[in-house]
Each structure stands twice: as structure tokens, then as C-alpha cells.
């Protein structure tokens, strides 16, 4: 019973082993699909390295799976601002990812100033800030500041999007 419970608990890590295995298989299959004539100037060719890496990944995947099934566990990373005593707080992470995805979808159409401000505001909200107005002011100042900073300082034109002509 106890053993079963611990096995179930380690399941998430088996997903990692599966990921390693999948990447290993993809690397090997991709390399195998290359067709290169043998060349005197390059006896190693572009396939050798992928085969070695794919092999390494597959071996790691198998060993990791065995290790996990035997009760081995990766040690989650600590840090100054990390409290590992409570489980992952998905209610913070998922809205964060949402803000991030929203930015990806919007950046090319509405431009950096708007999408970047939304990204900052949304992230701050996801992280628990409830001072909406102050957050919004900071977000707009940051995105406007970086827009002009990149344009004037680095010579990079971030997309202006909807505000084309205004900025």
C-alpha cells in the first residue's frame, strides 16, 4: 500500500523520463533521416553527434524511470524567496502563463506598448497585487520607457501596432 502510494506520487517525474526518451527518439530519428554522401573531408558527418546525444538521452530516460520507480526523487530547487513547504501554486502560475500567451498573441497586432503593459499588469495581478491603478501606471511607464529606450538607445524598432503614428 505504502509502496503503491509512493509510486503514484513519483508519477509526475516519470513524465520527465518520458520527455527525455521522446527527445532522444526524435533526435535519433531526425538524424537517421539525413542523407549525406560520405565525404573524405568530413568522416564524422552530421549524424554522429545526434546519435551520441540521442543515445545519452535514452539511457538517462531509462535510468531515470528506474530510479523513480525505486523511489528516487529529484530534489526541488530551493532559493531565497522559495518556500517548498507548500505544493506548486497553480493559481499563480496559470494566470502568469496566460498573461504571457496573451502577449504572444497580441504583440504583432497591437504593438509592444499595449501588449507589454498588459503583460506587466496581468503578471502583477497574477502574483497578487491588487492596486490596479498603481500597477497600470507602472506598466504603461515601463512599456513606453522600453519602447523609446530601445528605439533611441539600441536602435531597435519595437512594433508600434495600433499606436502607429501616435508614438
Amino acid at each position: 500500500m505504502n509502496k503503491l502510494a509512493s509510486r503514484l506520487k513519483g508519477r509526475a517525474e516519470l513524465g520527465l523520463a518520458a520527455l527525455l526518451g521522446a527527445v532522444g527518439v526524435i533526435v535519433i530519428l531526425d538524424a537517421a533521416s539525413l542523407t549525406v554522401p560520405y565525404s573524405q573531408a568530413d568522416p564524422v558527418g552530421p549524424k554522429t553527434m545526434p546519435f551520441i546525444i540521442g543515445g545519452l538521452l535514452l539511457v538517462c530516460a531509462v535510468l531515470l524511470a528506474i530510479n523513480v520507480l525505486r523511489g528516487g526523487q529529484g530534489e526541488a530547487e530551493g532559493g531565497e524567496d522559495v518556500d517548498l513547504s507548500h505544493p506548486s501554486d497553480w493559481r499563480t502560475v496559470l494566470p502568469l502563463v496566460g498573461a504571457f500567451v496573451l502577449n504572444i498573441l497580441l504583440i504583432d497586432t497591437v504593438g509592444w506598448v499595449i501588449s507589454g503593459a498588459l503583460l506587466f499588469w496581468g503578471s502583477a495581478w497574477a502574483l497578487g497585487s491588487r492596486r490596479y491603478v498603481r500597477d497600470a501606471i507602472i506598466a504603461v511607464v515601463l512599456s513606453l520607457g522600453t519602447f523609446y529606450g530601445f528605439y533611441l538607445g539600441l536602435g531597435i524598432n519595437l512594433p508600434a501596432g495600433l499606436l502607429q503614428g501616435v508614438l
Binding site: E77, G79, D89, L96, A126, L127
Partner: peptide
Amino acid sequence: ALWIAAHLR
């Protein structure tokens, strides 16, 4: 950042 967000002290 995501990792810390998931485990804020």
C-alpha cells in the same frame, strides 16, 4: 520566475 511564483514565501 515561474518557479518562484509557484512557491512564493
